[in-house]
């Protein structure tokens, strides 16, 4: 589904990704772990198509297409979803309206008829149950005045509505207490299936207790320096990133 080959990216002239390679197949959950500044968020943003990064080398293939040549909205319509570490507040745009616009943009892209307001409301209320969200949030402005946990739940609601093929979760656990974490993880787990893949970017192992990955990769200095199974996450939690950085440093 996703093939990243030797990806190099810079931001403001500074090299951040320095030869990152990763392959993700349908049905798999990959965790990307790493210390602060290792390039985790950059990887998420580059995959989603945010401006401000320059790709200086390598390639990203998504379902046989050159992902990097697509606009952010085209990527989204093709089934790529980024759950933001810091979801953006948009005063004046209601959550409901936003979700409907996003959902219908995707349907239109697939050549399906748009869903009308009544049917959509019913549909989205069902999805809200999945993340235990009060439907009152649908009428509020996108993320405005939401608590950290509510914002993250709102991300997962969007994920549930858009049903992406490839979900990238950027530090989804940050700012969540354990109850909120369970709700969010539960929402994500319900979305897991043989046709969907997840890339879970996280600093801490905690989230991986609830979203159990098939593979764990350690990102350091803009490259993946170690890969393993879910046990690797536990080792990192216990021993920190220090040993990896030493081990992974180029000779």
């Amino acid at each position: 589904m996703l093939k990243i080959k030797d990806l190099h990216a810079t931001a403001g002239g500074k090299a951040i990704l320095k030869g990152l390679s990763l392959e993700v197949k349908p049905g798999e959950v990959h965790a990307i772990m790493g210390p602060n500044g290792s390039g985790k968020s950059t990887l998420s943003y580059v995959l989603a198509g945010r401006g401000g990064y320059e790709i200086t080398g390598g390639s990203v293939e998504y379902q046989g297409k050159d992902l990097l040549s697509l606009s952010p909205e085209e990527r989204a319509r093709e089934g790529v979803f980024l759950a933001f570490q810091y979801p953006v507040e948009i005063p004046g745009v209601s959550n409901k309206y936003f979700l409907k616009a996003a959902y219908n943009a995707q349907r239109k892209h697939r050549g399906e008829p748009e869903m009308d307001a009544g049917a959509f409301l019913k549909f989205v209320k069902e999805k809200a149950k999945l993340v235990e969200m009060d439907p009152a949030f649908l009428n509020r402005s996108v993320n405005e005045g939401f608590s950290g946990g509510e914002k993250k739940r709102n991300e997962i609601l969007q994920l549930a509505v858009l049903e992406p093929k490839l979900s990238i979760l950027d530090e989804t656990d940050s700012g969540l207490d354990i109850d909120a974490l369970k709700i969010v993880a539960n929402g994500i787990n319900k979305m897991r299936g043989p046709k969907r893949a997840f890339v879970v970017v996280t600093h801490y192992q905690r989230l991986l207790d609830y979203i159990v990955p098939d593979f764990v990769h350690v990102l350091s200095g803009g490259r993946i320096v170690k890969s393993g199974g879910k046990m690797l996450a536990q080792q990192l939690e216990k021993e920190g990133y220090g040993w990896i950085e030493t081990e992974g440093a180029p000779a």
Binding site: G49, I90, A105, S141
Partner: peptide, 30 residues
Amino acid sequence: MSLESLFYLQSRGVGAADARRMLVYAFGSE
């Protein structure tokens, strides 16, 4: 116009022009 907000909307599949319209509307609708 906030580039962050534009990107957020686009990252959900909303086209660039629609996203800009949405943000202008949101600014005025208050």
